[in-house]
Amino acid sequence: MEKMADARYIADRALATVLFLAHRLEKPIFLEGEPGVGKTEVAIVMAKLFDTELIRLQCYEGLDATTALYEWNYPKQLLYVRLQEKEKRSKDEIEKILFSSQFLIRRPLLEAIVRADERAPVLLIDEIDRSDEEFEAFLLEVLSDFQITIPEIGTIRAKNKPMVVVTSNRTRDVHDALKRRCLYHWIDYPSFEKEYKIIMTKLPGIDAKFAEQVARFMQRLRQEDLLKRPGVSETLDWARALMEMQKDYLEEAVVMETLGCILKYQEDIRKFKEEIWQDEEKRAAYIS
């Protein structure tokens, strides 16, 4: 926990324990939670703590094995073939070089396996819930063996297992088989005390009382019935914005002017303005 705090990440004991065990047992970590609560940041901090490279695979709908693993540099191959034909090289000579590592474009999964020969990197597989189930099944196979077979080259194995962090915003259920390969941890919205510490850690120049006021505001806001409750990232964005505006105390007018920093749906902004903020008792509680 202390080392993570030194890297400006406020972690509770449960998360610190999961990270410790994942490193010792050489198992992937599966982090689940609402958007903006600091899941991706865990991988970034791990790379800093272990002084190693961070390799990120951003998942999305339609992501396939080719995009995540490797592809051949076809334009470069075509140029090479034309040059070699002019020199009247044999077909066998051309093919031997044509499908070699110099024409191979390594995508994140292959890059992590190759880099692990030197020093185990941190492989971040971000927002796995955005990918398709077919890719999820493929990923399960890769995480089991940490080896990839390229027909033209052969099998490439990782000498050292990469440290893997898989994140999910839980927009869909991820298959149990993938979770069983990992150590699971749920990252929830922070308590007031934790959020206050996060603000003070991430924004060293902020006034302590102002940080406390911002943290209390956000804690109260998350209790409202909103389409999307703001995460810690919105808290920090808002606090930075207020500091840029030379504010060190929450004022009614400033709150209304900067709602876009913390609420990302027009319906939520309208509800806050027309229902929540119109209630004098609630308004007073928010900026107390």
Rank of each mutant, 00 (worst) to 15 (best):
S101K: 15
Y60E: 09
A14S: 15
I94R: 01
R24C: 02
A16S: 12
E61Q: 14
I113Y: 10
R130G: 03
T235P: 00
P204W: 03
E95T: 08
A284R: 15
Q246A: 13
D12C: 05
A253E: 14
E134C: 01
A112L: 11
K161E: 02
Y196T: 06
L109C: 05
S101W: 09
R115C: 06
A177C: 04
R119T: 13
L110H: 13
A137Q: 15
L110Y: 12
Q84R: 12
L226H: 06
E275C: 01
S144H: 12
M245N: 08
A14F: 01
D12R: 07
I44F: 14
L69Y: 12
Y74T: 12
E193T: 09
E2S: 14
R107G: 03
I29Q: 05
P75W: 12
Q102W: 04
V214A: 00
L15M: 09
K161V: 02
P35I: 14
I269D: 00
A211P: 00
E133Y: 12
L21P: 00
I198W: 01
Y9A: 07
R283L: 02
K76E: 14
G62V: 04
V114E: 08
M163Q: 14
R82K: 15
K27F: 07
Y80D: 08
E87F: 05
V232Y: 02
G38Q: 02
E141H: 10
K264W: 02
L110K: 09
V165C: 06
M4V: 11
Q84H: 11
K76I: 08
R283H: 05
L139C: 06
A158E: 04
G154A: 08
V214F: 06
R181T: 07
E244H: 12
K76H: 08
C182H: 15
M256R: 10
K247R: 15
V232W: 00
F135I: 05
C261F: 12
E195H: 13
